[in-house]
Design a protein around this nucleic acid. Structure first.
Lengths: 200, 200
DNA sequence: CACAAACTTGCACTCACTGCAAATAAATAT
DNA sequence: ATATTTATTTGCAGTGAGTGCAAGTTTGTG
């Protein structure tokens, strides 16, 4: 019979993944992200280089430590949302869900600092989040039947999230969650009430 | 004496650069951007691989070929906009300005098509234009004195632009400019009127 | 215990990209 | 015109990312 969840294999995989991500982040913080090699990361996690690439497609993914579960939960949230829930509301739930976990891990600032300082990390973060956004857009478009609006909602929720984290770095007093809410509020009710198409 | 402009050396450099960019674009279109090697590009331009890297830091830069004038004009537009012009309106002018030139050059269908169709190129483009967005945000923030709103406006205008071009690829009937306007309209007047913070 | 499935690993390979030093071509001085 | 300085090209050697494959090892299952 297939073990429901707690098989040794599963646990070891999670463990290896965590060890690699942890080592990658630690080494990146110590030596700067561009001075870390996959060889070092693999060695620090006691696996072969090849195994590293079985877990992460790029070195940067390990440092970013992106959790695939987040995307899964997000898609789940979109799929199971009550019909009357407005799209931006769904996105807010998703963002808060992810944000809560990131804050719990307490690594948001450490990692964020690192990422913002490294073009290559930033690039890969965008790379992978764009892929996420694509999937979320598709899911949301199916639910609300308006591709343009779906993409805008997803894309702008993502932007709101990034900007909130960014502003939080500059003014740590403001909680990321509150900044996100402020941004979403702006988006929901109109970013620019005075906007007129014909205006010059 | 130093030649003012038309030295043989200068001309040859421009020529080599152009030949490399041209070859890169052509080969990328022919074989798909990910199936082109620097070796091929260099061979097509009749220079060594090493010389390629004297001109472009990455393979992608040769394919992308960005125009620095666009950013300059955008900053100019923000700085000289009449005080009563709403921020999103300014962004609309900027987007249309760039879009017009891209359409004129026929780049949107050649280079643009390629870029939008290739995740790797798209993200390289985003990476290199991220600095642009930062500068635009700063300029706009100074003008309207609201950093959060400024960043959201810039960031979302950028997203609207990308999404419009993307949708245009899927349904060529719709003009990019019109799609941009539709997206901005949504943003301006509220992406999600039913959004409520406390709602679940 | 035996067998199947999943995971790890080493190996050989391609490709991007860099530093260095030698060769070559162009600009300038004599 | 020729020698000299200066910029550009190039080959070469090397690092490091990332992939495919086949063999070895570990874990789950009957």
């Amino acid at each position: 019979m297939k073990q429901v969840e707690g098989g040794l294999r599963e646990r070891k995989k999670l463990q290896t993944r965590a060890a690699l991500a942890e080592a990658a982040l630690r080494l990146a913080l110590e030596k700067g992200p561009d001075n870390v090699t996959v060889e070092e990361i693999a060695a620090a996690a006691d696996v072969s280089v090849r195994t590293f690439f079985n877990y992460f497609p790029h070195k940067e993914h390990a440092i970013l430590g992106r959790n695939p579960a987040h995307l899964e939960r997000a898609l789940e949230l979109i799929a199971t949302a009550p019909a009357e829930q407005s799209p931006l509301t769904t996105m807010r739930l998703i963002v808060h869900d992810v944000l809560r976990e990131l804050l719990d891990e307490g690594e948001l600032s450490r990692r964020g600092e690192l990422i913002m300082g490294s073009p290559s990390l930033l690039y890969h973060l965008m790379l992978s989040s764009m892929d996420d956004e694509r999937q979320l857009s598709v899911a949301l478009a199916e639910r609300i039947g308006d591709p343009l609006r779906a993409r805008l909602v997803v894309s702008n929720a993502g932007a709101a999230c990034r900007i909130a984290v960014e502003l939080h770095r500059e003014t740590p007093d403001a909680a990321p969650a509150d900044l996100v809410d402020a941004a979403l509020q702006l988006l929901a009710q109109g970013l620019d009430p005075d906007y007129r198409k014909g205006q010059s």
